[in-house]
């Protein structure tokens, strides 16, 4: 069963269409990376899914049924945009507020969540003294308060230090492995998303450009050969003459070849035999950022 599907989901603010006929599908138990520029419509889409913003047109199905907020939000945990808390309340009190609102009374759940978020030692500290990373972790564990089946996390690793990113990634992967929680995660830290998600959806100007699983994505990404040589101009000429390869020079005096069908060892050998000094030769995979940039025609500075 699909945890979430959207059909022709559209949102307009006045005449401006911020989400355009979006069709998403989240399988149960998967982590879905939702990528896009600032203003691409990620947060608006998430807000529509959790009922914070009315849908202009289209449909949302949660757990195979048409969206019914009062019913479905019992199974959905969210952090949308910045993690908001009552600043003058402690971490424990903030969780208590949400525990009561969820109709839960077992206070040991708070201990468990604080432990899970690595916040046990600061449980009596007011949240307005917390760093962004601590707030993010508290927001994630707050979203887990009612043991949701689907987590909608908007930029959950934004503002985290490397340790925080690592801890959050481990936490999310553990949730997936141990509880089978389905997650939809938007993030601008693309390498982190890459290490976390099973599938990605790339949205640009409100429309879905691509939706693919990570295995396919890895295959699709361009690979290229980079060569560091002492005579780049001569090397370009030799590669053209001997292999028919159109090598290009980069700004650091090296070369790169997009056609990786030729064996790199043979290319190296022919360059050395022609008197070219080769100091480095390696095959590089297009990064997620590069792939994203190529899809959005270079307008994808930050997601």
């Amino acid at each position: 069963m699909k945890a979430l599907t959207t059909e022709s989901l559209t949102k307009k603010y006045g005449k401006k269409e911020v989400v355009r006929s979006l069709n998403l599908q989240l399988e149960e138990g998967e982590i879905y990376g939702f990528l896009g520029n600032n203003g691409a419509g990620k947060t608006t889409t998430m807000k529509m899914i959790v009922g914070l913003t009315p849908v202009t047109s289209g449909q949302i199905h949660l757990f195979g049924e048409p969206q019914c907020i009062s019913q479905h939000l019992k199974k959905v945990g969210t952090t949308i945009e910045a993690p908001g808390f009552y600043g003058n309340l402690t971490a424990e009190e903030n969780l208590w507020v949400f525990m009561r609102l969820h109709g839960l009374s077992n206070t040991s759940k708070i201990d468990e969540l604080l432990q899970m978020g690595g916040l046990n030692e600061v449980r009596h500290q007011k949240v307005n003294t917390f760093s962004m990373g601590m707030k993010q972790r508290l927001a994630i564990v707050r979203a887990l308060m009612h043991d949701p089946e689907l987590l909608i996390l908007d930029e959950p690793i934004n503002g985290l230090d490397p340790n925080g990113i690592l801890e959050t990634r481990e936490l999310l992967l553990r949730l997936k492995a141990e509880r089978g929680v389905t997650m939809m995660i938007s993030s601008h830290i693309l390498p982190e998303v890459e290490q976390l998600v099973d599938r990605i959806g790339i949205v640009h100007q409100g429309a879905l450009l691509e939706e693919t699983d990570m295995a396919t994505f890895r295959k699709k990404r361009l690979k290229r050969l980079e060569i560091q040589v002492d005579q780049p101009d001569e090397a370009v000429r030799i590669l053209q003459e001997k292999w028919g390869i159109n090598a290009r020079q980069n700004q650091r005096g090296g070369l790169f070849i997009n056609d990786v069908t030729h064996p790199s060892a043979r290319i190296n050998q022919s360059l050395v035999e022609s008197g070219i000094g080769v100091s480095r030769l390696w095959q590089q995979e297009q990064s997620m950022e590069d792939y994203f940039m190529s899809l959005t025609n270079g307008r994808g500075r930050a997601c």
Partner: peptide, 18 residues
């Protein structure tokens, strides 16, 4: 005003609190 200034409204409404 508190829920607006503390950016809490969206978190409360997704509990869900009507």
């Amino acid at each position: 005003e508190r829920e607006f200034s503390e950016d809490m409204m969206k978190h409360l409404l997704t509990v869900p609190v009507t």
